[in-house]
Design a protein around this nucleic acid. Structure first.
Lengths: 223, 223
DNA sequence: TTTAAAACATGATCTAGATCATATTTTAAA
DNA sequence: TTTAAAATATGATCTAGATCATGTTTTAAA
């Protein structure tokens, strides 16, 4: 077993591949391609055809959509342990969004023929992907509902909680938050200023620390 | 072959089950339960645990979410040939939305153990579901992007095109359109009044007919 | 068939949040 | 190290669209 084999990956145990049989795992090890990406590099672009899927060993990736006006929207965020680029691959469509490295990444690329081979010999793998994509739909629906029916303060509060729980390692700008909840950087700043005035958060330079989890959660639930 | 067997269903040929082997199709036929639903009846409720999946032979179903304020949002719409209730089943979650009959339905219920059995013996079935859910993510992302960055007139125009292409059989109220695009009935009406003034649509009582497809498509693309 | 509820329609008003402007601070690249 | 670009911050203004109000028409249920 080589040191860069999947079994040695820090996120192996909760990955889609953790239950593969030895033989199939070997096929994965020999066919995957390990790639290093630096911040702001592009992994794939809107319009590209998927050639396989990406497994994030470390770092963070954002999936962006830019509309005709130049407004950027963060569609999804991926961290270590997540797979990336699966939606277009499974839908047999071109990518409809661009994957940009948010924090330096170690990523393994798995060619699509290998993915299909593995799914054919181990049906549980397809079910695992099916579960993942189904949860993605749930997440999207929750976000859409929130954007439609909650005021910005609530959504900023939601974002603070989300970033704290799901992506604590990363630094986020006011613009990033705005692009996640569908608003403008100015509006995010004003909400943060309000929260700080009330003593619910601390803003230390660029970074934001929640001082009162209860208060922030409560705001996140307001309509 | 009985008359109510899946092979005789009008939507069989483009369903997920059209490539099943004879033996497995037989299992589907003997285990499915055919149910008739009337308009406004509820197929499943937010919070219920999925017991299987629903195959719509005819009619139409809307998946609703009601927030704490009582505002209703249409998350998804299903017509003849679509399956329903698969997301929660595959995600192994409870339903997070309520399925309400929009137009009288003939629906076949397939118990979850049968779904799983079929996926185990025919891997292609799982792939077919995977493709469907992946496309669902795409649709949700497009709708979310539209809600974030387009003015209401564009979204009303988008809705008119969507309803005409995807669900031509059905009648829609101003409120339904509002719940689909995340706005209020009044705002939808004002947009429709504008379109009519310009001669882009005809409003005959409750029903809306597009008079100028080009103009409506153009508005749908505006920011 | 009557009747209450829902849908349609439009005017008047209000406001959340976008937009614009300007200044300062931080970051990253030359 | 210098410097241009990006991020932060906040005030001033504007407006798209929500909300409220009122009346009419249509639908579905008693």
């Amino acid at each position: 077993m080589k040191s860069d084999d999947c079994e040695n990956c820090s996120s192996f145990s909760n990955s889609h591949f953790c239950n593969l049989k030895q033989k199939n795992l070997h096929s994965l090890n020999t066919n995957k391609k390990h790639i290093t990406f630096k911040k702001r590099e592009i992994i794939f672009r809107e319009g590209d055809s998927p050639q396989g899927l990406y497994c994030i060993a470390s770092g963070m990736v954002r999936l962006n959509h830019i509309d005709e006006e130049g407004n950027e929207i963060i569609l999804r965020l991926y961290k270590a342990g997540d797979i990336l680029g699966y939606r277009a691959l499974f839908a047999e469509e071109k990518y409809h969004a661009t994957a940009v490295v948010q924090e330096d990444c170690e990523i393994c690329f798995i060619p699509q023929n290998i993915v299909k081979e593995l799914m054919a010999v181990e049906p549980e793998l397809a079910w695992s992907f099916l579960k993942q994509v189904s949860k993605e739909v749930h997440n999207m629906e929750d976000r859409m509902t929130s954007i439609i029916s909650k005021p910005v303060q609530s959504r900023v509060a939601e974002a603070l909680i989300y970033f704290k729980n799901e992506l604590p390692a990363s630094k986020w700008t006011r613009r990033d938050i705005a692009e996640w909840i569908g608003t403008t950087p100015e509006t995010v700043m004003r909400a943060l200023a309000q929260f700080e005035d009330k003593g619910f958060i601390f803003q230390e330079g660029r970074s934001i620390r929640i001082a009162d989890d209860g208060a922030i959660s409560k705001i996140a639930q307001e309509y």
